[in-house]
Design a protein around this nucleic acid. Structure first.
Lengths: 302, 302
DNA sequence: CGGCTTTTTCTCATAGTTAGAAAAAGCACC
DNA sequence: GGTGCTTTTTCTAACTATGAGAAAAAGCCG
């Protein structure tokens, strides 16, 4: 408003997600010359070339991955890394969904999302890593606090992020967990990484961005019809359910899931059916009018 | 990633909210030399002066309004106005809550939020402006679409944003409504404003930012204990309810509200009571531990 | 003490959720 | 062409939450 204008380099980072073979995947650039580890598709925002942020992002993704994005949604703007010696001081992260494995450029691949966050996939029950590695490490960290106030704070933060051994684990708090692990030194990106490192590392702060994205996806799933962008135009109810389960990271009760989706008026039968090993599943299609009728329509599972 | 670095001016905009006398208020700079209308506190982000975005924002707010902010939350990054002749091409908006009328600098004042959005306050039933002005104008706009496809799209968008004459109005879709009105020319900030203008105007795109904020607040109220930052440390249940009602823009059922808050374990009695014209109200205080016990604790009214 | 106001407690009908059982519809194999 | 296997789909019963109203409780004012 006042004073000299100060100009800053602005980066755009893309989290491009798909689900195939019941596995959520994310588009990453493989390590290479200037990349110490997997990185998200990204580029610099140039207002002379692109009128809007998402136009710029689309151009970078097209360039780096030969991929056209559909719906795009802003995730977060990260600005606290001006001091790390790199010129870039601001980065705006976006989230996009695409259908399945689409064309791919050379140094880009689809990588299973949970490789970066093995503790987030509870579809086959609680992952061993939680009991074996995470709980002990975090408990040790809590116990290591010297003064009682600090210990209480750590206790509280822990309870929120990962619950207790028997108490609930909130699947939406992906970012809180990652940041906790970062602070304790449980991930390779930490300022002071410890001896035990969880999940695969990424370049820069990209794993943090990815954690933000997963949390956002899990929250949005409930009250917005996001999943349908990941599916082919025709799909069966079990396919829909498995896609939701893949992202939510846990199993759902099939009869209840069906009722939820049907009562929301989100889908309509195409008339056809898909053969399976058992009873054939009816094919469905998404009904976009649902969103106008009930603006909060989503798959409100819990 | 590749090519020459391109630098951009980044602005920080602050939506600072408070509730006093049952009226949500927002901190604005009054019109003046370079300001055609009310504007949000704002300034340029300078990474050399401030390590993080929110540090920069805090500094600007302190400077312009002599006010210290508590909890700060990122709202959105607006980037699509590079072509309007002004140098600033990116702005990161933040949302903050403060308790009540705190100190004020000269050209800054607390202004009732609903003056900018008179159609959003349904506490005394549906505002006359909705029936008298908004419905007719929007219906005319839908009818004015020439080809059927466009009319159908407008119909759908309208249904989502403002419902129908008898059907539900979703109080969270503040931004969708503002953007609809902007497009139709119902607000002074529109590219082509019509003869009838709704609400008070603001400078730049600040009313859009404010709409984003109100929508976010209304959504977050349900599942996060935000309100407590607006209240004095001790408060009564009716005070809490009225504050929530002020933000939500509608009335709630007192007995049910009480049950909700108490069952969530969000508050505890202080032991004291506040005199009123009727039965004295018990004083309460917020119980921060609630958030650790139930990470999604909020006032889950609907 | 009786009337007034406001807070607080109670109650009840309705709606939504969880969890399990079981029926239905195909295939494969004898 | 039946029998068993798998998977989808329908049904049902218990439980929990929500919406709306009645009424009790606790103060003040005259």
């Amino acid at each position: 408003m006042t004073g000299m204008p100060i100009d800053i380099a602005v980066a755009l980072d893309a989290v491009v997600a798909a689900v195939s073979d019941d596995e959520p995947r994310v588009l990453v650039r493989s390590p290479g010359e200037h990349l110490p580890a997997d990185a998200l598709p990204a580029g610099t925002f140039d207002p002379d070339a692109d009128a809007t942020l998402d136009a710029g992002l689309r151009r970078w993704v097209t360039e780096q991955a030969q991929l056209d994005l559909g719906h795009l949604e802003q995730l977060y703007t990260f600005g606290d890394r001006g001091r790390d010696g790199r010129r870039r001081v601001l980065s705006v992260a976006y989230l996009a969904f695409v259908r399945e494995s689409t064309p791919r450029a050379p140094r880009v691949r689809w990588h299973p999302w949970y490789r970066y966050f093995p503790w987030e996939d509870w579809r086959d029950g609680r992952p061993a890593i939680v009991e074996d590695a995470i709980f002990p490490a975090v408990e040790a960290w809590v116990a290591a606090a010297t003064d009682p106030q600090a210990r209480h704070d750590r206790q509280r933060r822990t309870r929120r992020a990962i619950g207790t051994r028997r108490a609930p684990w909130n699947e939406e708090l992906v970012l809180e967990r990652y940041e906790l692990f970062w602070e304790i030194g449980l991930v390779a990106e930490s300022r002071a990484p410890g001896p035990m490192l969880l999940g695969e590392r990424m370049a820069f702060d990209h794993r943090r961005i990815l954690a933000t994205a997963l949390g956002r996806v899990r929250g949005a799933l409930r009250y917005r019809p996001l999943v349908f962008e990941l599916l082919a135009p025709d799909f069966t109810l079990p396919e829909l359910q498995q896609t939701v389960e893949a992202l939510a990271g846990r199993r759902l009760h099939a009869p209840n899931f069906r009722r939820l989706v049907e009562d929301a008026g989100l889908v309509e039968p195409t008339g056809a059916a898909r053969q399976t090993a058992g009873r054939p599943a009816k094919l469905l299609r998404y009904r976009p009018d649902a969103i106008a009728e009930r603006p909060d329509a989503g798959i409100g599972f819990r």
